[in-house]
Write a protein that binds this DNA or RNA. Structure first.
Length: 137
DNA sequence: GCCAACGTTGGC
DNA sequence: GCCAACGTTGGC
């Protein structure tokens, strides 16, 4: 069963363009230091898809990535976990946080409910709707 | 720049 | 083990 996720990042430190440049081989998703986020990363399976979300000024889903390597210890600190993700496709139209909040069907999204969690699960229905809103897939 | 929400730390 | 104090995140 494929699962869906949402990964948050500050575009100044690691943004969509950088993700695209890293290619199909993918890149470690580093810096997660939250136990719930770690638990979510450990639940990811190869082939799972995730929204790539820019925090800061943009606050929008800007693309989709896929998990290309499942959870493994962070070499910088083995108590923590990394997965590798690779860019799949950009959003034709970024789906802003404002748009998500304006959509009643998305009011229970973790993005809305717990804005601080950097690695979140996304429900199937939420996934489909946001993909549609962003002109993806 | 502020502050709400959330996590962590450390004294007890 | 509790909880007050503090630090961080991220939206506004």
């Amino acid at each position: 069963m494929m699962a869906y996720w949402l990964l948050k990042t500050e575009p100044e430190s690691w943004g969509w363009d950088a993700q695209v440049k890293s290619g199909a081989k993918g890149e470690p998703w580093t810096g997660v230091r939250n136990p719930i986020a770690r638990k979510n990363m450990k639940a990811m399976k190869k082939g799972d898809l995730a929204f790539f979300y820019h925090t800061g000024d943009e606050k929008a889903v800007v693309g989709v990535v896929k998990v290309v390597r499942e959870a493994y210890p962070d070499p910088a600190d083995p108590a923590w976990t990394l997965v590798d993700v690779a860019a799949v496709e950009p959003a034709r139209k970024p789906v802003t946080l404002a748009a998500v909040k304006a959509e009643p069907k998305l009011k229970d999204m973790t993005l809305v409910r717990n804005s601080r969690l950097s690695v979140q699960p996304v429900a199937d229905a939420e996934w489909k709707l946001i993909r549609k809103m962003g002109g993806m897939g």
